[in-house]
């Protein structure tokens, strides 16, 4: 079967991230990398194959030239090939547009199972998997803490709104996995070398039959009016406990009327 893992190339979450004047994410002044939360999706794809399910793993990303870094890292962890959708007209595309591009690319590739991370570490909306399922017209089995694929059925555990749920659907399906599915592996040196030879195909909007005015910043269905850096918190008093730390803290809390 065919597994497609969607990955995103994002500004490093540990760096000082910011915005461009047009309200889009600044991807220039901060180093980018494979979104940490997508590593769990890659790991689950590899584990599904290792559990005995015969499958080809394709990584898919939508992003600028450098986004191939994310694909190469994924390929270094394992898997077979990658597709990079890259087009100047994509810059500024929102989640709705991104889900459209991903859906077209996934359909062009063929799929039985689409695996996504629970959210990106930049936009962090966590809505693309549900949008993809809606567009592809297949079941969504999302926010899974545990995944199993068996006999054409995908099952998992989801921390729902008010309860822990066991959910399942027949393939083809779109799933998303959380950071609780288990640590992702590190690429080995051998893996990194092998990744260089794995096929990586680049596609543009034309290849996918998408009109350029369906995507990009001008086609986004919401707009940022202002983005302001939150003033850094001013560091308050820090005392060293010399036997009275708890009392001192209580005095502070009482002054703030919490006690």
């Amino acid at each position: 079967m065919k597994i497609v893992v969607c990955v995103k190339y994002v500004p490093d979450a540990t760096a000082d991230r910011g915005f461009n004047e047009d309200g889009t994410t600044d991807r220039e002044s901060v180093d980018s990398l494979l979104s940490e939360l997508d590593e769990y999706a890659i790991e689950q794809a590899l584990q599904i194959v290792e559990s005995g399910v015969e499958a080809e793993i394709t990584y898919l990303t939508v992003g600028p030239d450098d986004a191939t870094d994310a694909l190469r890292k994924a390929l270094a962890m394992g898997g077979d090939n990658a597709v990079h959708v890259n087009d100047d007209d994509i810059q500024g595309t929102d989640a709705l547009g991104t889900s459209l591009i991903l859906a077209k690319a996934i359909e062009a590739n063929g799929y039985d199972l689409v695996i996504c991370g629970m959210a990106s570490t930049d936009g962090g909306m966590g809505v693309v998997p549900a949008m993809l399922a809606e567009r592809l017209g297949v079941p969504q089995v999302t926010y899974l803490d545990e995944v199993k694929v068996e006999g054409g059925v995908v099952k998992g555990r989801r921390e729902g709104d008010t309860a822990t749920e066991q959910v399942e659907a027949s393939l083809p399906a779109v799933i998303s996995v959380t950071d609780r599915t288990g640590e992702a592996r590190f690429p080995s040196f051998k893996g990194i070398m092998a990744a260089r030879k794995k096929p990586l195909e680049s596609k543009d909007l034309d290849d996918l039959g998408i009109d350029s005015d369906e995507v990009g910043l001008s086609a986004a269905w919401s707009t940022v009016d202002a983005a302001t850096a939150r003033p850094a918190r001013t560091k308050g008093e820090v005392v060293t406990d010399e036997g009275e730390g708890g009392v001192q803290l209580a005095t502070f809390l009482a002054a703030k009327k919490f006690i």
Binding site: K235, V238, D241, G245, G246, L249, L253
Partner: peptide, 24 residues
């Protein structure tokens, strides 16, 4: 975490917290 705080105590939480609880 101390860069964010309005008030911080450098110390052993197992000493500071029980004392805080008693004081509250």
């Amino acid at each position: 975490i101390f860069d964010l705080v309005d008030y911080g105590v450098v110390g052993d939480l197992f000493k500071v917290l029980p004392q805080l609880e008693e004081e509250i």
